[in-house]
Design a protein around this nucleic acid. Structure first.
Lengths: 116, 116
DNA sequence: CTCAGACATTGACATCAATCAATCTGAGAC
DNA sequence: GTCTCAGATTGATTGATGTCAATGTCTGAG
């Protein structure tokens, strides 16, 4: 178990604004400029009340942590949740409670990605 | 869903040394001064290679986050994992992936609440 | 090619967090 | 009572992080 990279993953989750972002990616606002089911950076800027560079910074961290996927669609960047990142976090939580380093995570998880 | 308190919980997990502590609490070193199955602060100090006040600081955070329970046993303080804290973290991970604000996470849980 | 819009990057600043030396507290041993 | 030890608290320092203004880059429209 790599404590440093594990800590990095949890660090990505350790900010209220980033948690809001993740929540917005599951329940996108109705008036999303990238269309329903999708969220672009400008949406997040409005919803979070943060400046554009700040949003960009947070998204970079979330993508690097593997929690979010960024896809360039023309002028916009479309962000979607990455279930694998959550699965990994859940596995880590399970592993922390097991005497053996690696362990089964919470439940058998089958996540509905972001169905649009 | 309270993003601030949720972030606090993940923040407690967002440090390599604290993750090591949690791992040590599941698999205590054989030569624990508090006896097998228990871990006291002096054990952690040796295992982590950190100064005593630093260990005390980390343990305070873990206890405050609900991940660890501290019990005074005479001169020593015995630390044990608190499964409820892990359960809550797991629930948060699940809730973040569900369109509804509060949702059934890892353990089978029926929880209804307010949408933010 | 030129322009405008969407993000990313950079730089600067303020705040937070990790660390340790020094000190304090509280419990057992004497 | 005093002494000693475990660990908590305080204060200071250093590095990490969140934030925004200014600027850069890339894409589509004209």
């Amino acid at each position: 178990m790599d404590f440093d990279t594990s800590a990095e993953l949890f660090k990505a989750l350790a900010d209220p604004n980033r948690l809001k972002v993740l929540k917005l990616l599951v329940s996108p606002p109705a008036n999303s400029c990238a269309g329903p089911g999708s969220v672009c950076a400008c949406d997040l800027e409005g919803e979070l009340g943060l400046a554009q560079p700040t949003v960009s910074h947070h998204m970079k961290l979330l993508v690097r942590a593997g929690l979010v996927t960024a896809t360039k669609r023309g002028k916009w960047t479309e962000y979607t949740l990455n279930p694998q990142g959550f699965e990994q976090a859940c596995e880590l939580l399970g592993a922390l409670q097991q005497p053996d380093s690696n362990a089964a995570p919470c439940p058998p998880k089958t996540l509905q990605g972001v169905a649009s």
